[in-house]
Design a protein around this nucleic acid. Structure first.
Lengths: 354, 354
DNA sequence: ATCGTAATCCGAAGCGCTTTGGAAGTAAAC
DNA sequence: GTTTACTTCCAAAGCGCTTCGGATTACGAT
């Protein structure tokens, strides 16, 4: 039989009020009775009914994440890590994370339903777009949320993000320092904020070095292995392909490396490659990949959990920001242009002979 | 301003009871007033507060899925489809699906918490084990659930599953019909029920054909690309490798095919390969894969949604079962043994010459 | 002896909905 | 005209918790 507040109170000869406040950690109950109450609650296995609590307080102690199943997020283990860290960070404060799956075309409706249904105290918006209708809706409704990634918005809002522009710039600067001038970019749809920012960083680095960006060296690709594969093939088909390449997401990165392999090419001999976010554990590669690295998803998740709690505690939204700095992690897939040229000469000579 | 039942009732000059029952579709309210009520509710934008309703009814109209982040499920787009179908099937009945992420080591605790917290009306257990403590816990607590995959249990319980044994048997029979006798198996941990069943089907087919299973032809592998890759390399390193192979999951299947490619081997010339569940969209392959195919995840999800609703409606648990039949989808990765032998001869001859 | 203060405790009013157990009105049956 | 049987509606009692606004007691201060 489930015990409730009333029974607990009765068995202690106290009022429900006092028991409730004792358990709630209020100061107007003596240390002695608090201990008595806690002991009894423990002994009788009392657990406050969250449904009742919710109705009384109006809080659900749950934060939600609406998850559109267009699946790009799948296979990206980074996302899993973030969720994991978030969940852990929240549960330390007795809050839960609930992921609400939804068909992409019904996404906005679901936001409305979830908010109206008061199913969660706050929402996390991931994969932000440059122009993001979800964030506009949330702002309009005045519902608490945290954006995982920034967006263009006239109003302030809380966000967690990395300095994508700086990351891409650093990567391209590294390639330039290696002597490259024909540097390609494979990027996701520029509707995604992260892609737009990395794209901007790429252009900025080139221009700063006095290099005119070439449209043909820039290929768009879905966030997927296949996407990266095909985009790489496009670039390889150019009359003069790039000598170096930045790939703006890890899934496409795998595809790129596979495409190179399939064409008998090997980084960095034939092409210098830097992959944003590195490549997830996939199948064995004969080299480590030079990457723009960001903190692990777990760390990010924990920070986001703290941000969410701060928002719910009433911290002004224009103060809740976190901008992580990515770092370049040197690997074996990029190198000096001269080395490549030499290798290429050897290669063509060999081909001519055979 | 949010309108509640009381306000709605007042504005109509009716009691809360009547309004509630009108909206609830009870028969003891006249058609005329029902219409009036519905019209007014619509006009005033009345939405019953789910928190209050939950407290009153004790139902949450949510089904949960506790999701351990050991990540095998990631990258397996099949799982995403299932979730999607489930979610859709449930929302047609105004129920929600909530995915609760959890660290693997805290999984059982979370089951307890979620149940005690009455956060959901029912749970879905996925990736069932042969011996599954989660299912035991749920049975013990008498909490409604649906197992996605069977398990060994003395008590009846509701499940959704495919005939894994039959699927594996059919695949192996096909290979046998092609003349193969050295047929390998790459399988996931046999703690997983699906793996155990497919393993059993594999053995059964061999024995039925009078072939003695060879331990060395059976390799265990994690459910991942890397796992499949390594397992394939193990089998290739054998003195006499198998001439045909069944891979019991799609992720490992990709790894297997990549490993073959990396060793300059090509199915079916050098090895006949059948992959359970086919291979997910990955990077381009020069052939279609012969697969044991199951209905799409969406369909499965919708069926599961119906099952859950039936359980909640009180249908006896030993009547809620669904066993899907997998079918072999012929592709270009398997074929007659003789053809392989001929090709191999040609191959070795060529090697001898060069 | 009286007052103010601080420390504890509690009654009762919600939170917004569902549901039980009638009551009132109306029509059919005798 | 009375009885029976519906039909339609409603008052009130929860669901289990939180919290506001005191009430009570104890005690040092005046």
């Amino acid at each position: 039989m489930k015990v409730n507040l009333k029974m607990l109170a009765a068995s202690l000869g106290l009022s429900q009020t006092t028991v409730s406040r004792a358990l709630g950690g209020y100061s107007d109950v003596s240390e002695a009775t608090r201990r008595r109450v806690e002991e009894a609650a423990q002994r009788m296995g009392y657990k406050p009914d969250p449904l009742a609590r919710r109705l009384a307080t109006g809080r659900t102690d749950t934060v939600g994440m609406i998850f559109p199943f267009d699946a790009t997020e799948f296979g990206d283990n980074r996302w899993g890590e973030v969720v994991s860290g978030l969940s852990e960070g929240l549960s330390a404060h007795d809050m839960d994370l609930s992921i609400i799956p939804v068909l992409p075309e019904k996404e906005l409706d679901t936001y409305r339903r979830v908010i109206e249904g008061r199913r969660v105290d706050a929402l996390i918006v991931s994969w932000t777009r440059v122009d993001d209708s979800r964030i506009r809706l949330l702002q309009e409704l005045g519902f608490p949320f945290l954006a995982y990634g920034r967006t263009e918005s006239p109003l302030p809002y809380p966000w967690f993000d990395f300095d994508n522009e700086a990351g891409a710039r650093a990567a391209v600067e590294r390639l330039i320092a290696f002597g490259h001038r024909r540097i390609g970019l494979i990027h996701a749809s520029l509707d995604y904020n992260f892609a737009a920012q990395r794209h901007a960083g790429y252009l900025a680095a080139l221009r700063a070095a006095g290099i005119d960006p070439e449209e043909t060296l820039i290929a768009k690709s879905p966030i997927s292995r296949t996407g990266g594969y095909k985009a790489m093939e496009e670039l390889l088909a150019l009359d003069t392909p790039p000598t170096a390449l930045l790939v703006d997401n890890n899934l496409a990165g795998i595809g790129v490396l596979r495409a190179l392999g399939a064409h008998g090419l090997q980084p960095p001999r034939d092409l210098s490659v830097i992959v944003y976010d590195g490549v997830p554990t996939d199948i064995p590669l004969p080299y480590t990949v030079t990457a723009v690295q960001q903190p692990t998803g777990e760390q990010s998740g924990r920070i986001m959990a703290r941000q969410i709690l701060a928002i719910l505690a009433g911290k002004p939204v224009d103060e809740v920001h976190h901008l992580g700095q990515p770092v370049i992690e040197a690997g074996g897939t990029d190198g000096p242009l001269e080395a490549q040229v030499v290798a290429a000469k050897r290669h063509t000579r060999k081909q001519a002979v055979s």
